[in-house]
């Protein structure tokens, strides 16, 4: 069973509708004293957009506001040209795959997707359900109860239910969680095809690689603020251009520090009690040079740790730049 051919053989067939599908104008959301989303303005157009940010940055809050499940404390959230809050008619054009893995587990996959089609009052609910289940490749297991599904299968079933009415806008909160690599590739393919067909797809992720594989456009959100927005290649350059910090300990830290300072890829070395803190401007050159220095000088390396590889530091660098 080839994944790519299944997807491209049945592209969503609805005519492209109006552009500017989702618009946020000065949107903030706070809970008591905690600001979850801070003055975000963005426009999402046709194609796939990645909403990237560390955990707790406000991605889910933002998605919930776009999906009409949370009132903005300030500002406007428009889907099509209508406000999302207290307006169920937006769901005619909007599909949501929330992060929480909640499904009516007593139903079979088929019943669940068919129920979605009927709740949308589609003219041919069976045909729509079959198409959606085919898109996520769940036809084989569709007559089993959802309670028996793996996490990835549930996720795909939820995506099928969100796609059943072929929405113009599809919002997905961490859609690749719990999927194995093959399912992940297939889902990325599916999003691509839908985006190319003129749908507006927004998916959130805290994993940069996921985002860069699926989407050309990225919205980076850090601590509730929109930190960067636009083409991922640009953002990627910002990320790779930043200095990398390593902590190193060796049999002779001082001698190693001297040797390291001779390297063009190293921009700074600090000697402290526990070892060395090394700042490298070029990640690749530094990690290639270090083993050679060590071998040449006969120093024994005990430990090499990237100090700031956590996403939070990557993101905070973005905020500063």
């Amino acid at each position: 069973m080839s994944t790519a051919s299944t997807v491209s053989a049945t592209p969503p067939a609805a005519p492209p509708r109006a552009q500017a599908s989702v618009e946020l104008r000065g949107v903030s959301r706070w809970y008591g004293n905690v600001v979850a989303v801070n003055d975000v303005t963005m426009t999402l157009n046709a194609g796939v957009t990645g909403l990237l940010g560390p955990n707790g940055a406000g991605k889910t809050t933002l998605l919930h506001m776009m999906a009409g499940f949370l009132a903005p404390s300030r500002g406007e959230v428009l889907v099509g040209d209508a406000p999302a809050w207290r307006n169920p008619s937006v769901y005619r054009h909007l599909g949501l795959v929330s992060e929480r893995e909640a499904v009516h587990s007593f139903l079979t996959g088929w019943e669940f997707v068919l129920a979605s089609a009927k709740l949308h009052r589609l003219p041919q609910p069976e045909a729509a359900a079959r198409r959606a289940i085919g898109l996520v490749e769940m036809a084989d297991a569709q007559h089993r109860r959802i309670a028996t599904y793996s996490k990835g299968m549930r996720q795909r079933t939820r995506v099928a239910a969100a796609l059943v009415h072929d929405p113009q806008v599809l919002l997905l909160d961490e859609p690749f969680n719990g999927m194995d690599p093959r399912q992940r590739l297939h889902m990325m393919d599916l999003l691509h095809v839908m985006g190319a067909a003129g749908r507006t797809i927004l998916f959130s992720s805290h994993i940069l690689e996921e985002v860069e594989q699926v989407s050309g456009t990225v919205q980076v959100i850090v601590a509730g603020r929109l930190a960067a927005s636009g083409d991922y290649r640009h953002i990627r350059r910002l990320m790779t251009g930043r200095p990398h910090v390593f902590t190193v300990s060796s049999s002779d830290d001082r001698a190693l520090a001297v040797a390291l300072m001779g390297q063009p890829s190293v921009t700074g070395v600090e000697l402290d009690g526990g070892g060395l803190t090394v700042r490298a401007g070029d990640y690749g050159a530094f990690t290639r040079a270090l083993p050679m220095i060590v071998r040449r000088s006969g120093i024994r390396l005990h430990r090499l740790l990237p100090a700031d590889e956590s996403l939070e530091s990557v993101f905070s660098y973005l905020v500063e730049s």
Binding site: A67, F69, Y91, L96, A102, H104, S116, L119, H120
Partner: peptide, 15 residues
Amino acid sequence: DDGTLVHVLAKPLPR
């Protein structure tokens, strides 16, 4: 409680 209501609410149904 279990969050399944969201599936019903994310439809253009009059509340």
